[in-house]
Design a protein around this nucleic acid. Structure first.
Lengths: 163, 163
DNA sequence: ATAGATGCAAATATTTTGCCGCCAG
DNA sequence: CTGGCGGCAAAATATTTGCATCTAT
């Protein structure tokens, strides 16, 4: 099936190399956005913290540094980053409720593969995925700004009993 | 890019051939689920109505036939259909708010391509997409039950000015 | 100086739950 | 008959808005 090694997916347990500390701050500054104390705090966390942050966790982490920081500011900052194309918003197939998850956007999109059994989420890159996007870009004459692929199922350890 | 014709995407303006009226009702019945009046109403609508229904629209359509039908019943029925793998849940990249959209699940998954400018959503099938899923299934040893791919961007008529 | 950001409270939107009476099988 | 289902009200969760105040530039 994946006879060609170039087609093989690459495992997702990598470090987020795209987010050397300060990247988001630099980007926003470059685009003429104001860097408030609250934004710096949030950007630093998003740049360095675990992937798949949700609003709840982001707020909790931010308040360690700045206890007055408001939840609304979290929402507004995430909106800004979304509009600027600096973070992606995911729902991870509603694995846990209807909240959203956010992650910094790197040079290469990846696929999220989630197990409904154990809840583990793997990130996967694939040459086929990149080609598929190109194909759609061409055939639909679209200028793609967001590409999201989320796969749900059961991993080998959680294989559904009755299937 | 898509030199191989087999790789070309197929346009999405097709009829939903997978939902000949009664299909959902048959499926649920076959699985030993009760067919109440409310469920029949909802199933009929989902089987035949426009794609990308949200709860609001589904409820409104349902109440034409059964004015007492409750919103909670809509949620519970959609949950059932999701659990049974008969409908897919989408958010279409939050094109319009954070609501979800539902569509009957056919034999072949498709990609949703949405334009942030005009809001149009195209459905696209692709041989590459099928191969990508197979690849992940194999390489991650996953038993895939849901595969969602959503693309956002700007179509030729809405091309973003400053990009 | 001033456009734009934050905090707070309240509003809105979306989804879930508890409970009781009802109905499909 | 009876266990699953639907309606209603209320709760829980998630996100947005109005407005006065503050601050980065």
């Amino acid at each position: 099936m994946s006879a060609n090694p170039a087609n093989r997916v690459s495992s997702g347990e990598r470090i987020n190399i795209t987010s050397e500390p300060g990247r988001l701050e630099q980007e926003l500054s470059r685009r003429g956005k104001r860097l408030t104390r609250q934004r710096r705090t949030l950007l630093r966390i998003i740049d360095t913290a675990p992937r798949h942050l949700n609003v709840e966790v982001l707020l909790r982490l931010a308040r360690r540094a700045d206890p007055r920081l408001n939840r609304v500011t979290v929402y507004r900052t995430l909106d800004l980053l979304k509009r600027e194309g600096l973070v992606d918003e995911l729902d991870l197939l509603h694995l846990r409720g209807h909240q959203h998850y956010y992650e910094t956007r790197g040079p290469r999109d990846h696929i999220h593969v989630a197990c409904f059994g154990c809840g583990k989420v793997r990130e996967v890159e694939s040459e086929l995925f990149d080609r598929l996007k190109q194909q759609i870009e061409g055939d639909c004459d679209m200028q793609i700004t967001v590409a999201r692929m989320e796969i749900g199922g059961y991993c080998s350890r959680c294989r559904r009993p009755g299937l």
